[in-house]
Design a protein around this nucleic acid. Structure first.
Lengths: 236, 236
DNA sequence: GAAAAATGAATGAACATTCGTTTAATTCCC
DNA sequence: GGGAATTAAACGAATGTTCATTCATTTTTC
């Protein structure tokens, strides 16, 4: 899904970095005081520009917020497929997708939190855009989940609901970052979560397959999950 | 934790129902357009009173928001202990606590969503109050979780983190209600979630205990129970 | 008929947005 | 190459609107 933004400035390259500069500042402020608690003047100061300049690159304040949403979704859409590249095993794809989603959240904590808290601040049309992007992104996770069920690795549960729980788990890192950053790393958070999700769904057959993956990898690293591209054997 | 609110009106009983009336209207509006997207005038209209009246019962708009938070926490603090009453078995207490938490969310969807989205709209001091209440409430869940670990029913994981996941799961019902109300009931949501959480944590000993509970209860009602136990092999 | 409640028009502060002006960059001409 | 002319960007003070809040007045209660 592509959305168009118009700008008073012609030079495409300039538009891009100015927008980036301004949106970055906006995220920074929004994350602290929320959308409504932040003035354009503050954003301008943070970005080191004048308030007027912002309106050369963005239609209104709300569009700035929409751009924050776009950042997050773009990251998902890029990172998850990239991490799945070359992986054919459903179980590996599942793990990789969840990790990629969480890592994306982890590198955009401010934006994720803003996204959670400010969807009501968008007008109806823009909310619709965001909702569509959200569902589109969910599919990146739901795909591997369904593959795992089809292969018999996961017992059969409501895939939509389960996907939603995975997504919420990922967002959780951002939502409670203030609480957890002191007691656990993102890696730890991911692996503990994955471990629990796997325990929740793996069938005996799934476990068998899982151990074959682990074994194939490296017994030395008898972690809970295979790190990256592990077993190249194709199943199916 | 008790917070006091002062009012220009003396009669305590009247104060209570007026506040209730106004806060109810506030939740209704906040849930649609958010805190900042809602005017006092709208709230007054929804409640069927004048804008001025609101200020006889509430210091300012923000206090109205704080009252919304109080509603949610009060519900948790009342419902969860009530549902745990008389239960001594850790596993039963765990399930009951999770169910009670979810049910509380279910009967206050609007307020829960508002709580999630508007914490940034409170000033620092009020945010602190809310944060404290949140941790206090989490303990109602964390308690049974720790009991289950101590009893050997749950394998040992980070209890704080796990509690947080349970809480997030409960909030999830409110956060994505628009999406899930059509495809699943709250009961279904709770039981599917519980089932997965149990699979994730129960030890072989825990499963044994679980089946003894189920058996002792009524075999007829076994859909709540997982069909198959997970692989008992210890990992890690 | 006093006191308590409730009203809603008036007030004033906050803030998004505009736009006339300034500054910088680029082009053109000799 | 340099200086004038043109165009593009950026600035930031001024504008107008939107509310939260107040309070003089009216209505209700006892």
């Amino acid at each position: 899904m592509d959305i168009e933004f118009t700008s008073q400035v012609e030079d495409a390259e300039r538009v891009e970095w100015r927008r980036d500069q301004v949106v970055r500042a906006a995220v920074e402020r929004f994350a602290i005081n929320g959308y409504h608690g932040t003035t354009i003047k503050e954003i301008a100061e943070t970005a080191g520009v004048s308030p007027g300049l912002i309106y050369s690159y963005v239609k209104d304040k709300e569009e700035l917020l929409l751009l924050v949403f776009m950042i997050i979704f773009k990251k998902y859409q890029e990172e998850i497929p990239k991490q799945l590249e070359g992986l054919h095993d459903p179980l590996q794809r599942f793990c990789a997708a969840v990790r990629a989603y969480c890592e994306s959240v982890g590198s955009n904590i401010g934006a994720t939190v803003v996204g959670y808290q400010e969807s009501k601040s968008l007008n109806a049309e823009r909310r619709k855009i965001v909702k569509a992007l959200e569902l589109e992104t969910n599919e990146l996770i739901a795909g591997p989940v369904r593959e795992c069920m089809k292969a018999g690795y996961f017992r059969s549960v409501n895939a939509d609901l389960f996907t939603f729980r995975l997504v919420l788990f990922a967002h959780g890192w951002a939502l409670k970052h203030w609480h957890f950053r002191d007691i656990i790393t993102l890696e730890g958070y991911i692996e503990e979560g994955l471990d629990q999700f796997l325990h929740a769904l793996l069938t005996p057959f799934g476990w068998q397959h899982w151990y074959s993956l682990i074994g194939a990898e490296e017994a030395s690293r008898q972690q809970r999950a295979p790190k990256r591209r592990a077993d190249p054997r194709k199943r199916k």
